[in-house]
Amino acid sequence: MGSGEETLTAVEVGLREAVPGDAPAVVALVESAYRGDASRTGWTTEADLLDGQRTDTAAVLEIIEAEDSRVLLVERDGVTTACCQLERRGEIAYFGMFAVRPSLQGSGLGRHVLALAEREARAFWGVREMQMTVISVRAELIAWYERRGYRRTGESRPFPYGDERFGVPRRPDLEFIVLTKPLD
């Protein structure tokens, strides 16, 4: 990790790979972490930026079943409490669909899941870099990733305005920035 922070093992965190039957629980978690008033309990809410859905069951199933993709999730007492997507894109791994139950945000669970996802991507695919996109106006979230070794690449990507599968923007200036981290 390079930051000196202790990381729990996948077993200690309760991390496992999602199966198709997990898709509804993953959707419910992601929606609770990012959309609507319930998401305001945590600090990762996008409720002031976007209305509508963040994802749906069909999209999550597609990710779970894709050849170069994995969805990792954490369960505690039978409840899905965290998840993320890893996707191999050539020599890099893309990290996305990261969500932690709002009531557990700030507990350190997200930090552990991110570190485990980095280890999983390196071990499973042999990739040497993790990449992600973050909405550019999410300064607090970007700073959180930067504290974990991610750096801005200077690259930006357009937000998919007009495609309600990704939400209904509440402002006209949304775009994604690309963050990356070497996985040595």
Results as ranks from 00 to 15, higher is better:
Gly4His: 11
Thr7Ala: 14
Leu8Thr: 01
Thr9Ile: 05
Val11Leu: 11
Glu12Leu: 05
Gly14Trp: 10
Arg16Gly: 07
Pro20Ser: 10
Gly21Met: 01
Asp22Gly: 05
Ala25Asp: 09
Val26Pro: 00
Ser32Glu: 10
Ala38Glu: 14
Thr41Glu: 14
Gly42Trp: 02
Trp43Asp: 02
Gln53His: 02
Asp56Asn: 15
Ala59Trp: 05
Leu61Lys: 07
Ile63Phe: 02
Glu65Ala: 12
Glu67Cys: 03
Ser69Gly: 05
Arg70Lys: 13
Val71Gln: 12
Val71Trp: 05
Val71Phe: 13
Val74Asn: 02
Val79Asp: 13
Thr80Ala: 13
Thr81Asp: 09
Cys83Val: 14
Cys84Tyr: 01
Leu86Cys: 08
Tyr94Asp: 06
Met97Phe: 13
Phe98His: 11
Pro102Cys: 03
Ser107Arg: 11
Gly108Lys: 12
Gly110Trp: 06
Leu114Asp: 01
Ala115Asp: 09
Ala117Trp: 08
Ala117His: 07
Glu120Cys: 03
Gly126Ala: 11
Val127Phe: 09
Arg128Leu: 09
Met130Gln: 07
Gln131Arg: 15
Met132Cys: 10
Met132Leu: 15
Met132Phe: 06
Thr133Phe: 00
Arg138Phe: 07
Ala139Arg: 14
Ala139Asn: 10
Glu140Phe: 02
Glu140Tyr: 04
Glu140His: 14
Ile142Thr: 13
Trp144His: 03
Tyr145His: 08
Arg151Thr: 13
Arg152Asn: 14
Arg152His: 14
Thr153Arg: 13
Gly154Cys: 10
Glu155Met: 12
Ser156Met: 12
Glu164Trp: 11
Gly167Leu: 12
Glu175Ile: 00
Glu175Cys: 15
Pro182Trp: 06
